[in-house]
Structures are given as structure tokens and as C-alpha cells.
């Protein structure tokens, strides 16, 4: 549309608007003549609401009103140490997550308030502190940084880097990932795992919901914290918790069988995430907990190329070795996985 045409439409629209509704037809007859498109354009604009529309409330007011209505609004503004809670962004067995402001450094943070059962024994709060210290030392562009661990009047909380992006799980629910994008993310995830495994930390809860896609690439969330949870909440019914958390589908056989976990557990988890990124579907499915467990323990997923024909054979091989039931038959080190992935992606 030419600028002149735009100008013309605007002028006629405003002129028509200034008239009584019943005088508009005659006006448009005169003004538009035989130009039917022009007339239709103006008529369709005239049908828009003119008062109390979403544009009559400033954007900030609009956002604030929705903030006021949201879940957990009663916590807003509350201080935890030097952090002010601004809004609740998630709630779950691992506690509640808030968006907040670090009032000393003036930056946004994500604050996870831990449930009492994780922190009420002295042993556990010590272990938490120890673990948090190790995770906070991780410095990697693809890991969501843990900034701080605090305790305010018995409320324990973890403070993380605040990220804007989309969870991989949400992305996968909407659309598939093109292979090059899936490989790029996989390389970033593997790279992050190399660093953490070197530091002796296992993630143990790799799943699309723990992976955020940001402008700066992938960010792994909840590093090392899962391990704590497994160890700490023996009092909570495991099966109920795991299935409710959506974690069950992403567990390695040794986790289900409560055997020893090590870095190869993450390699299995990595394989599940990569499989789903490439094929768009989880490697293991079940109608209920029991069938899901059976499937993880016994089924060999179809090669990724079965669902995504563009998958190169080398990637099928890589995935099969990630997803071996017996840890000793998997890749033994994430470094090897990373090298192989880079080769596939090249």
C-alpha cells in the first residue's frame, strides 16, 4: 500500500468518525465514489470498537492488572534476604519459583524456595549447602548459574540467573526441531555436561523441561539439585512424585531400579533428550506408570531415522549407544559423545 493511500484512508476514516453514524454512509458514497476497496477498508475500520479496548489501557497497567490476578500474588513484594519476590512463576514438589529482584545488585533473579521436607533436618541443610556450593562454582555459558543460597527465618532458597526463553518441552509440544537446530542444542548440552562431569557433578534429571532455549542458546536448569532431591525426600512416595513430576519418562534403568548412578546416567538422559529433539517424540511411552517402567527397562526404541528419515546413520548409532540399558554398554564419557556429535553435525 502506498503512503498516499494510507494517508487517504486515515483521513477519510477520521472524517467519517467525526460524523454521526447515520451520516457516514452518505459521506462514504461521496468520498469513495467507485473505489470499492477504499470504501470497504474504511467500513471495516469503522466497525472496530472505540472505547474500553485493550489499547485504551497503557501496556504497563495492563501487565500489572494481570500480575495482580495471578496465582501466588500474596507473596509479591515479600523480601527473602536481600531479594524481593515479584511474581510466582512455578510451583512444584521442589518448591516454588519466583521472579525477583536482587536489591543490592539491581538485577532480576529466579528464586526457588525449597520445601521444608528438604531442609528441616540439619544433615540435609548441610548437604544442600555443600551441593549448592559445587553447583555455584560451575561457570558455563549453557548452564543456568546458581548465584546464591539463602535462609531467611527457616525458609531456604536458591537464587538463579533469570532467563527469558522457552522451555524445550514447550517448544517440542508446539513444533519439531529441524535437525541442524537439534544438533546445535545437543552439542551445547553435551558441552555443558563435559564441564560438570569434570567437576564431579551429575545432573540426574535431564529432560526437556529442564532445558531452556534462550537467545544465547541452550541453558540447563537445576544442575545437581536433582541428586539432592533423590537423596533427601525418601519420605515422599517416590513413584507418585516421579510420575507426577514428569520425570519418570526420562529416567535411566538404573534410576528406576535404584542402583548406583554415575555420569553414564546422564548419558542415558542426554540420549532421551536428543532422541526427542530429533524425532519429536519421547523414546519411551506408556499409558501408565507400570507400562512406562516396563518400556524403559525392556524396550529398544525404534531408530530415530524411523521417525525422522533425514537422520544420518551415525546419529542412530550414537543414540543407540546412549540408550543402552546397561551403563557399561553406553558411551563411557560425555566427551566421546560430544566429539561424535560434532562429527555428525559437520
Amino acid at each position: 500500500m502506498s503512503p498516499e493511500r494510507f494517508e487517504q484512508i486515515e483521513t477519510l476514516y477520521n472524517d467519517a468518525l467525526a460524523l454521526e453514524p447515520n451520516a457516514r454512509n452518505a459521506f462514504l458514497d461521496r468520498a469513495c465514489g467507485t473505489d470499492g476497496d477504499l470504501r470497504q477498508e474504511i467500513e471495516s475500520l469503522l466497525t472496530s470498537e472505540r472505547s474500553n479496548t485493550c489499547l485504551d489501557t497503557d501496556a504497563i497497567q495492563f501487565a500489572a492488572e494481570s500480575l495482580a490476578q495471578q496465582d501466588g500474588a500474596e507473596f509479591m513484594g515479600r523480601m527473602l534476604g536481600r531479594y524481593q519476590l515479584l511474581s510466582l512463576v512455578g510451583r512444584g514438589g521442589m518448591g516454588e519459583v519466583y521472579c525477583g529482584v536482587d536489591t543490592r545488585l539491581n538485577r532480576l533473579v529466579a528464586i526457588k524456595v525449597l520445601p521444608a521436607y528438604m531442609t528441616d533436618s540439619r544433615e540435609w541443610s548441610e548437604r544442600l549447602e555443600q551441593e549448592a556450593r559445587a553447583v555455584a562454582a560451575l561457570n558455563h555459558p549453557h548452564i543456568c548459574t546458581l548465584y546464591d543460597l539463602g535462609n531467611d527465618g527457616g525458609m531456604h532458597y536458591l537464587v538463579f540467573e533469570y532467563l527469558i526463553g522457552e522451555l524445550l518441552s514447550d517448544r517440542l509440544a508446539k513444533t519439531g526441531l529441524p535437525l541442524p537446530e537439534a544438533l546445535r542444542y545437543a552439542i551445547q548440552i553435551a558441552d555443558a555436561l563435559v564441564t560438570t562431569h569434570q567437576e564431579g557433578i551429575i545432573h540426574c534429571d535431564l529432560k526437556p523441561r529442564n532445558i531452556m532455549l534462550t537467545k544465547a542458546g541452550v541453558k540447563l536448569l537445576d544442575f545437581g539439585i536433582a541428586e539432592l532431591r533423590y537423596a533427601s525426600d525418601a519420605r515422599v512416595n517416590d513413584a507418585v512424585r516421579d510420575s507426577a513430576s514428569g520425570t519418570l519418562a526420562y529416567m535411566a534403568p538404573e534410576q528406576i531400579e535404584r542402583r548406583e548412578k554415575d555420569t553414564r546416567t546422564d548419558i542415558f538422559g542426554f540420549g532421551l533428550v536428543l532422541y526427542q529433539m530429533v524425532t519429536g517424540r519421547p523414546a519411551f511411552l506408556g499409558n501408565d506408570q507400570a507400562s512406562l517402567i516396563q518400556s524403559i527397562l525392556n524396550d529398544t526404541p525404534a531408530p530415530a531415522s524411523h521417525y525422522a528419515p533425514k537422520t544420518p546413520p551415525a546419529l542412530d548409532f550414537l543414540l543407540a549407544r546412549c540408550l543402552a540399558k546397561d551403563p557399561s554398554e553406553r558411551w563411557q564419557s560425555i566427551c566421546d559423545v560430544l566429539l561424535m556429535l560434532k562429527w555428525v553435525a559437520a
Binding site: 512455578g90 519459583v97 522457552e166 507426577a244
Partner: peptide, 21 residues
Amino acid sequence: DYARSRCYDKRGGGARPMTLD
């Protein structure tokens, strides 16, 4: 950015462990 982060329920540092995937 705020609206986007809220609409998708995205954030740093946390999974939504209680809800089903």
C-alpha cells in the same frame, strides 16, 4: 519480554516439577 516469559511460563532456575510434562 515480561509477557512472553509469563505466557510460556518460562523462567530461569526452575522446572515445574509438580505438573505433568
